[in-house]
């Protein structure tokens, strides 16, 4: 009797679950991965654009600080460098910090799960 029970337990534990995946399961996985890939690409383009803006802003700010005579003839541009460009640089740096924290804290945690 004991041996019979042990055999039954073995058989039961080796029984495949009756659950089957849906017919379009693979298509759905591929679709999710495609969407993710597109979203990652968009993020990359956004970061690249932002990086260029920050570099431009930084360059423009540096030149206007050390070589103010270069922009004196463009008074409109000078006003812009006084107000808008520092703000753009600040926003750019904040966005980069947020993106970095998002990658480090949230995505890494998701990958660990």
């Amino acid at each position: 009797m004991t041996k019979q029970i042990e055999q039954l337990i073995d058989e039961a534990l080796k029984t495949e679950p009756s659950f089957k995946l849906g017919g379009n399961f693979k298509d759905r996985v591929v679709l999710v991965l495609r969407k993710k890939e597109k979203s990652n690409q968009r993020k990359l383009y956004f970061l690249m654009a932002l990086g260029m803006l920050v570099i431009f802003g930084f360059g423009y700010g540096t030149i206007s600080y050390f070589l103010p005579s270069l922009f004196e003839s463009f008074s409109g541009l000078k006003n812009m460098s006084d107000q808008i460009i520092p703000l753009a640089v600040l926003i750019g740096v904040m966005v980069i910090i947020i993106q970095y924290l998002d990658k480090k804290l949230i995505k890494n945690r998701m990958l660990q799960t």
């Binding site: 999710v32 993710k36 990958l111």
Partner: peptide, 18 residues
């Protein structure tokens, strides 16, 4: 079963991602 299907999908997405 619905949770199972969704979680299996999550597993494979994570596998490919990582």
């Amino acid at each position: 079963n619905m949770d199972r299907e969704e979680l299996c999908q999550d597993v494979f997405v994570k596998v490919v991602d990582k």
